Amino acid sequence: MGDSLAHDAGPRLDPGAFATLVVTEAEDRVAVQLNRPAVRNAIDVQMVEELHAVCTHLEQTPKVLILSGIAGDEGAGTKGIFASGADIAQLRERRRGDALAGINSGLFDRIARLPMPVIAALDGYALGGGAELAYAADFRIGTRALRMGQPETSLGIMAAAGATWRLKELVGEPVAKQMLLAGRILTGEGCLAVGLITELVESAELMAAAHGLAERIGLQDPLAVQATKRVFHAPREAHPEVDNREQAELFESPAKFERMQAFLDRRKK
């Protein structure tokens, strides 16, 4: 999968430890496929717990994370699914205490805060909690088959795992309100038009595009990427002090001297 971001020799995730995810780890990235095709990759409590385990690993060993949905069986109507939302059977039984516990919102916030970038590769349905999971990513690549939206109000609840504020930041208030309050579902082309995805590809090219983006990230200095992500998400009042502090650390890093010297050496040729 290309040059390593970390060239780590540390512990790896055990693929056999996951029942709702298919996990593939390389030196510079972890690819995670949501794997509940019989229910269109609906996010249940077990999947939440397993995604938390992935986060724990990536917080300790920073790597790019690629999120996608298992392709499934076209005959069963599950081909091209990211996540159809939270598991409605479980959601129906949740009460006040479950909402206050922030089961999905806590996970998605943790994913958004991972040290290295997160790429969501979106095909087919990305609805409800599935869409909110995608909003937590740093990059979203979609296909023409993508259908993204927030149907929660039709079920008597609200989108409470990040959509009410992340979506407004991503696409602006008018489109966000259409999706949140009127149930508008965006196509892949519609997502591209409003900036909800940054790239539109054919379904067969989706994973290659996601890994290609991971390759480009891998060409950057990992410490500089992590610092930039932290500063990007810092509150406005933290600037410019947070920029200066992070830059001060990078100015002393060995990679800064090595990469700048390599640049100067190439220019001399």
Score class of each variant (00 low, 15 high):
M1R: 06
G2K: 12
G2E: 09
G2Q: 05
A6Y: 13
A6V: 11
D14W: 00
D14F: 00
A31V: 10
A31P: 01
V32P: 01
Q33Y: 09
V45S: 13
M47V: 05
H52L: 10
H57F: 07
H57N: 02
L58D: 05
T61I: 12
P62H: 04
G69S: 01
G72P: 03
G75S: 06
A76V: 02
G77E: 03
K79G: 04
I81T: 07
I81W: 02
Q90W: 14
Q90M: 15
L91A: 14
L100Q: 00
G102Q: 02
L107H: 03
R110D: 11
G124S: 02
A126E: 00
G128A: 08
G142C: 14
P151R: 05
M158E: 06
M158D: 05
T164E: 14
T164W: 11
T164R: 15
R166D: 00
V175C: 03
Q178E: 14
L180D: 02
L180A: 08
R184P: 08
L186G: 04
L186I: 05
G195N: 01
E199I: 11
E205T: 10
M207F: 14
H211K: 12
G212M: 13
A224N: 10
Q226C: 08
T228I: 08
H239P: 06
V242D: 08
V242W: 08
D243K: 11
N244T: 10
E252M: 15
E252S: 13
F257R: 10
E258I: 04
K269G: 12
